[in-house]
């Protein structure tokens, strides 16, 4: 053979370093792969069946062997067969796919929370403990992690192929995805929704670590302030505490323990206090007026960044008592500093 040894070496190196199957690194990955393999078997079966039919007929009934065609009108039985059998297979796949979808998108209740903000062209991850990462995400293995994600500008999509999960990151609303990593390692993070010039640069690394390594990492990379602490500060500086003080006579409802509960609204409906709901009440308060309160809260649209909103949401989620609110309120009054600026106030 004339292949030069250098070329040969190059080729073998090339081929051995090129995967044809993605790594399975989450609990969902084997399930997704099982369906994927089944689907390929179905495709193979279909192609072989059709190929065999076409090939056999082409050989057996070619003009040389079969000079005169025999006209056949059709066959209801055969039509029914190849309507019902594919339909049955497709419905089976539908059920399987739906089952997998619900597994992928319904997080377990005890999932650890991480927030992600996407913007052209970077991913910011914020851990509740105050660790901030850019184009990277550190997660422990063996523990469900839920990402609550939002975009500051255009549609993005958060994709981790090794975990077989992906979710669109949308401007103006939270979307979530969860996974449970199984293998320590470093995996690709891609933005899969075309988002402008540097779309292909909106990538990053997902580092799955053993719990003890993750503990170490959290300790080393904290910024010193947790998200809830940031949120508390913001809560005070935006003057939220002046109404949401937890006092019975306060102008705003008590926020302690509100997260996750169903709230009766002014218009008679009931709304569930989720992350997205909390965010929306800050931006569009007049659409979320609780029963017995006046629609006097101003909108904070354009005044708080998405990161700030995440801090506030995280703070309200953690809020169990109003003790500290009243503390900060008293301090604020004493020092007479933060008051809402006039343009934030809207006369009813």
């Amino acid at each position: 053979m004339g292949i030069s040894p250098v070329l040969w070496e190059f080729l073998t190196k090339w081929l051995t370093t090129s995967p044809v199957w993605p790594r399975e690194a989450s609990t969902i990955a084997p399930w997704a792969d099982a369906l994927f393999i089944f689907l390929w078997l179905m495709t193979l079966f279909g192609v072989v069946l059709v190929g065999a039919l076409v090939f056999t007929f082409a050989v057996r009934y070619r003009k040389e062997r079969h000079p005169v065609a025999v006209q056949i009108e059709g066959s209801t039985l055969l039509e029914a067969t190849w309507t019902i059998i594919p339909l049955g297979i497709f419905l089976f796949i539908f059920v399987w796919g739906a089952w997998l979808y619900f597994r992928i998108y319904n997080p377990p209740a005890d999932a650890m929370q991480v927030y992600v903000v996407g913007k052209q062209w970077m991913w910011k991850a914020e851990h509740p403990g105050g660790q901030h990462e850019i184009n990277a995400l550190h997660v422990p293995i063996g523990r469900p992690v839920q990402l609550t994600m939002i975009s500051q500008d255009v549609f993005h999509s958060y994709s981790i192929p090794a975990f077989r999960v992906k979710r669109e990151v949308i401007p103006g609303r939270y979307s979530t995805v969860w996974f449970n990593a199984t293998e320590p390692g470093v995996y690709h993070l891609f933005c899969t929704q075309y988002c402008g010039t540097l779309h292909s640069g909106m990538i990053g690394e997902i580092t799955a670590m053993r719990p003890e390594d993750y503990e170490k990492w959290t300790k080393l990379s904290t910024s010193g302030m947790s998200l809830a602490q940031n949120g508390e500060r913001l809560f005070a500086s935006m003057g939220c505490n002046s109404c949401h003080s937890g006092n019975a006579a306060a102008a705003g409802p008590n926020l302690a323990g509100v997260y996750g509960s169903k709230i009766k609204m002014d218009d008679g409906s009931e709304q569930l206090a989720t992350d997205g709901w909390l965010r929306d009440t800050i931006l569009n308060p007049s659409q979320h007026v609780p029963l017995g309160y006046k629609p006097i809260m101003p909108t904070y649209q354009g005044q708080i960044s998405e990161e700030g909103l995440i801090d506030l949401v995280e703070y309200i989620k953690q809020l169990k008592t109003n003790y500290r609110i009243q503390q900060t309120l008293n301090t604020a009054k004493a020092e007479d500093v933060v008051q809402p600026t006039p343009d934030q106030k809207v006369t009813p």
Binding site: W31, A32, L35, F36, L39, M42, T43, G46, V47, V50, G51, V54, A58, F90, I93, F94, W96, G97, A98, W99, L100, Y101, F102, R103, I104, Y105, S157, S159, P161, R164, V165, K166, R167, T192, Q193
Partner: peptide, 29 residues
């Protein structure tokens, strides 16, 4: 003949994308 072969593969891989859980992995790739 080419059409039948390729369309069979094309059509059946569409079923991959129609299956909800599979679509999560495959879409936008």
């Amino acid at each position: 003949f080419g059409f039948i072969g390729l369309f069979t593969i094309g059509g059946l891989t569409g079923v991959f994308l129609g299956a909800l859980g599979m679509d999560v992995m495959l879409t936008e790739t």
